[in-house]
Simulated scan of single mutants.
Amino acid sequence: MRMRPTAQSAGQQLEGEQQAAELRAELDELLRASRYASQRERRLNEAIRASPGRQRPDGDLLRQLAQARTLREGLGARCLQLSDQLEALETRLRHRQQQEQDQEPPQYRRQPPDPGPESEPAAPKAPPPPARPDIGALTERITTLHRTGALTEAAELLDQAATRLDAADAALLVGMLARYGPTGASLDLARGAARSTPEHAVAVLAELRELGLAEEAAALFHAFWAYPAASVPGLLSALERAGQNADSATLLWEWGSAPTPELTSLAACLQQHGRLGDVRTLLRQAVGRPTADLASLATELPPALATDLLHALAALRPPVELVRLAAALDGAGSRDLYGQLLGALLADGPRHRTTLAALRAAGLPTTPPAAPRSRWGRR
Rank of each mutant, 00 (worst) to 15 (best):
L322W: 07
A68Q: 13
S334D: 10
A267M: 08
T183V: 11
Q99I: 12
H146C: 12
D166M: 00
A20H: 01
L359H: 02
R78N: 13
T139N: 14
D247F: 05
Q8Y: 10
P350F: 10
L342K: 00
S186H: 03
T148C: 03
R35I: 06
T91I: 02
L309S: 11
R54D: 12
E207A: 12
G149V: 01
L157A: 08
E215S: 04
L61I: 08
L283S: 03
A168C: 04
A203T: 01
A155R: 13
L211S: 00
G192R: 00
P303D: 12
P318N: 05
R289A: 10
E90V: 07
R378C: 10
T139P: 07
Q98V: 04
A68E: 14
A170W: 04
A268M: 06
A304K: 06
P182I: 04
R317V: 14
G149Y: 06
R96T: 05
S265H: 10
L220M: 09
T367C: 01
T367E: 11
T260D: 15
G116Q: 04
T291H: 05
P106E: 15
A347M: 03
L364Q: 13
L270G: 07
L301Y: 07
L145Y: 02
R69H: 12
L276A: 12
A344M: 06
R42Q: 14
A312H: 02
R35S: 09
D114A: 10
T367N: 02
A238W: 02
L65C: 07
R109L: 04
L89I: 06
L297R: 02
P259N: 06
A242R: 01
A371P: 12
E240W: 03
S257V: 08
A298N: 10
L322P: 08
L239M: 11
R35D: 12
P117N: 13
T355S: 07
L65N: 06
P57S: 06
A50S: 08
G331P: 04
Q98T: 09
H222Y: 12
L173P: 03
R335C: 01
R63G: 04
Q107L: 06
A178R: 01
R209I: 08
L151H: 04
L341S: 00
T281P: 01
A286M: 08
A315Q: 06
S257A: 14
R40W: 03
G74P: 03
P117A: 15
A137I: 15
D60N: 08
H273Y: 07
Y108C: 09
P368A: 12
A123F: 00
G184N: 10
P350R: 06
D169E: 08
L187M: 05
T366Y: 08
R280I: 03
L220S: 09
L251P: 09
P302W: 00
Q18W: 10
D58I: 01
L61Y: 03
S374C: 13
T197V: 05
I135F: 00
A7T: 11
S231I: 07
V287C: 13
Q340L: 00
D336H: 02
A68S: 13
H352V: 13
P121Y: 15
L329G: 00
A194F: 11
A361K: 02
S237N: 11
A150L: 04
A206E: 09
